[in-house]
Design a protein around this nucleic acid. Sequence first.
DNA 1: TGCCCGTGTGGGAACGCTCCCCGAGCCGGG
DNA 2: CCCGGCTCGGGGAGCGTTCCCACACGGGCA
Lengths: 352, 352
Amino acid sequence: MTETAPRPTLEAVAALAGVSRATVSRVVNGGAGVREQLVERVRRAVEQLGYVPNQAARSLVTRRHDAVAVVIAEPETRVFADPFFALQLRGISKELTEHDCQLVLLLTEGRDDHARVARYLAGGHVDGALVFSLHLDDPLPRLIRGAGVPTVFGGRPGWGNGARGTTPTLYVDSDNRGGARDAVRHLVGLGRTRVAHITGPLDQTSAVDRLDGYRDVMEDADPRLVVEGDFTPAGGERAVRQLLDRCPDLDAVFAANDLSASGALRALRAAGRRVPEDVAVVGFDDMLPVAEQTDPPLTTVRQDTEEMGRLMAGLLLRGRGRRGGGRQAGEDAEGTPSGVVLPTKLVRRVSA
Amino acid sequence: MTETAPRPTLEAVAALAGVSRATVSRVVNGGAGVREQLVERVRRAVEQLGYVPNQAARSLVTRRHDAVAVVIAEPETRVFADPFFALQLRGISKELTEHDCQLVLLLTEGRDDHARVARYLAGGHVDGALVFSLHLDDPLPRLIRGAGVPTVFGGRPGWGNGARGTTPTLYVDSDNRGGARDAVRHLVGLGRTRVAHITGPLDQTSAVDRLDGYRDVMEDADPRLVVEGDFTPAGGERAVRQLLDRCPDLDAVFAANDLSASGALRALRAAGRRVPEDVAVVGFDDMLPVAEQTDPPLTTVRQDTEEMGRLMAGLLLRGRGRRGGGRQAGEDAEGTPSGVVLPTKLVRRVSA
DNA sequence: TGCCCGTGTGGGAACGCTCCCCGAGCCGGG
DNA sequence: CCCGGCTCGGGGAGCGTTCCCACACGGGCA
C-alpha cells in the first residue's frame, strides 16, 4: 500500500488556473457560463493535477449521490446465478454508466436481512433502487416502498390485486402471458391437441402469467395437463413423469422455462418418446447455454433481458432529481401502478 | 413519490437527548467513554427520530467510505453470466455485509472502458477494489495498480513472471494446477493411458495452470492429445472431433471446464463412443446446472467458489483503515506478490 | 482543606464542495 | 461620451459529520 498522496482539491485547481473555486466548479460541472479561454485553462489545470471531484463533499451539499442500489432478494443462489440476472445487471450497468451513475449491489443473505436493506435505502445513500424480488410473499417490496426511495421493480410485483394502490408502482417485465400464448399457439399450429404445461413455482408472478397465457389458448383443456414445476430440470423431469402417467397421449409440452424444459426432454427421452416427432417441446427464456445445448435444441420464447435492465435504469433515472411530485414515465394518468412490458419472440429450433 | 421529509441530523438528536453533538457522535460510533445513562438517552432519541448518519458527511471527514468496488472486466457477457462469478459475488457480499461495507459493482462495457474504471478507483470513492480480470493481456490490472487503491485480484493475475514485483499483489485463486493433476491422476488410476486434454483459452491463467497440471502427470504424452478449446460447449465439440481424428485410440478426456466437457460428451456420443466405457471424461468447476445435467452426469473438479469471494473481501478488509505501510495477510516477508490458493476436490459422478 | 488528576462532556474548526449574491466589466444606446 | 443593463467571476456561507481541545466535576492524597 503506497502512501496516498493528498488528493488535489478544487481550491488547488483554482489556484493553479488562476481563477476562483466557483469557476472551476462550473467548468467541472459542464462549463456553462464561463469564457472559453478560461475553460481551457481550468481543463489544463485539472489534467495537470489529476483532479477528481470528491463525491462525498459533493453529495453533502447536492443531496444527490449519483448512485442507485440494485437489490436482489433471492435466497436461492441458483436463481441468482441465472444468466437472466446477469444480463439484466449488464443492461442496468450500461444505462447507469451512461448517466455517470454508480451501481451499489445489495444481495439479501437469507431471511431477516430485509431490515438491513430497508435501513440502507431509507438512509438516503442512493438516489433510487432497482429491486428484484420474485416471490409473492416477500415482505421486502413493501418495506422498500416505505423507505421513500424512488424504486423500479424487475418483474411485475405481486401485490397488484388492487390492494394498496395509492403510490404508483413502476416495473419492467416481459410479456410472459403473451409469450406463453405464442408458445402454445405455435404448438397448436403444429397440429398438437394434447398440450401439457409445466408451470413454474406459482408464488412468482412470471410463473402465474405464463400459466395464464397457456390457459388463454387452451381454454378447455384437460386440467390434468397442467403440472406445477419449480423452474429446475429435476422439477421438469418429475413433471413429465407425472404427466405421462396421467395423460399418456399428450403430444406437446410447454415448459415455463428452459431449465424445466431440459429436464422434460430428458424424461421424455427416458420414456422412449421422440422429440419433436412424438412430443413437441417449447421452453421459455431462451437462456442460451441451456436452450442451445439441449438435445434436440430447444424451441423457446426469447425475452430481451438486457433491454429490460436498461429500461429499468432508464425509468429510474428519468425521475431523478425531482424532490417530490412530477409524474414518471410508465406511470399512467391516475398515478396507479403501471409498468413497461417488453415483447417476447418465439425462437424456433428443433424441439417444436 | 412522497415528499421526502428532511432527515434528522446529529444536531437534532442531540437537542432531543439534551446532550451535545459530540456525545451523540460518540454513542453512534460505539459509545465508548459515555455514561451508560446518557448512552441510553441518546439511543432512544436516535430511535425516536429514526436517525441515520449521513454517510457523505462522514466520508468527507474520515476519508473512509465503507464501500469497496468489485470490478468485472469481462467483455463477453457469457462469462459474466457464469454461476462462478455469481457465487463469488455472493461470498464477497456476505463478507462485506458483516463489516458494514457496501459493494459497488463496476462492469466494463467493452474496450476503452478501462479509463473510466481507473478514474473512478483513483477518485478515492471506495476503500478498495476486488478485481476480476481473466485475460493476460488486459491492461486494466496495471491501471488499477497505478490508481493506488488497495486491491485483491480474483484469480492469479497474468504478470507473475517476475516482472515489476515491487508492490505486493494479493490474489485468491483455486488450485487449478493441483485440481488438474487430481483429475488426470484419477483417469490414469482408472487404467486410461491415452488421456487427452481440451484446454481453455490460453490467455487466461486458469487455463494455463490446468494445462500445466495435466502435463505434470502426463509428462511424455503424445502432444497431439492436447487441443486448445475456449471454455464453451461448441469448443469442446470441435476439440473432440479434432482429437478423434488425430488420435482415434484415446480413452479419456480431461476438459478444462464443465462447459467444454458437456460439448465433448455430445461429440463423443455423436461419434458413437460410450462414456465412460470407451472414453472417460472429467471436467472442471463443478458448475452444478451443467455438471449434474449432462448425460451421463459429469465427474469434475470442484472449487469452493463462494469461499473464494469471502476470502477476497476478507483480505481486502483486513488492510482497511491503515493509511500506509503495514503488511497485509497473504503477503510474504519480502512484500512480493503472493496469493491465497484454495484447494479443489474431485467429485465423482458417472462420466469417469 | 487544598491541589491535582482522570473521567465525561461541550464547543469549535475543518473536511471539499455547491450555490447564492454581489460587484466588476463590457456592450450598446441615448 | 456617459450611463444602464447584462454577463461573467469571486467571496462567503453552509451541507452534517468527526476530531481536537478546553473545561467541569468529583475523589484521593498530601
